[in-house]
């Protein structure tokens, strides 16, 4: 059974869905909309690369690229979220004491001990 037309139709359909995401990226009133839109475009790119590989009949050449995207895609989103957090929420004066997550157990604090030490050394920063 020849599945190639099915895959090609799927590629074009995903491209049109990508266009919808792009509308949100271009028009999106807030930065959060744009971040989400670009993240979804990245996920669709991953799927599209695999589909192109299947149509070519050489998935093994393309699977590494999609793995790289799957591993690395959220770094950009994470950096953008950090940036957004920084420009929208000025930090309180005592970050350790004021903002402990209520669900965090005591053992989590031990895991975070080295990070906490570096947090306290950060306080000299003006």
């Amino acid at each position: 059974m020849n599945l190639e037309p099915f895959f090609i139709v799927m590629v074009v359909a995903i491209l049109f869905l990508m266009l919808c995401n792009l509308y949100r990226v271009v028009a999106g009133p807030t930065v959060i909309d744009r971040m989400l839109g670009v993240n979804v475009i990245g996920i669709k790119t991953t799927v599209l690369i695999v589909l192109i590989g299947i149509i070519d009949g050489r998935v093994e050449m393309f699977i590494d690229i999609t793995l790289a995207y799957a591993l690395l895609n959220f770094i950009t989103t994470l950096a953008a979220a950090r940036f957004y957090q920084r420009i929208s929420h000025p930090a309180p004066s005592e970050p350790e004491e004021s903002l402990v997550a209520p669900s965090a157990g005591p053992e989590v604090e031990e895991v975070d001990a080295p990070a906490k030490a570096s947090d306290s050394s950060r306080k000299e920063t003006p």
Binding site: L22, V31, V38, I41, I52, A80, Y84
Partner: peptide, 23 residues
């Protein structure tokens, strides 16, 4: 106008050009 938005949209551009080269 916002540099954060511009950087994010540049990320989308990078995805698309990667698709182009894959193709």
């Amino acid at each position: 106008e916002g540099l954060l938005s511009s950087a994010i949209v540049t990320g989308a551009y990078s995805f698309l050009i990667c698709l182009m080269w894959t193709h």
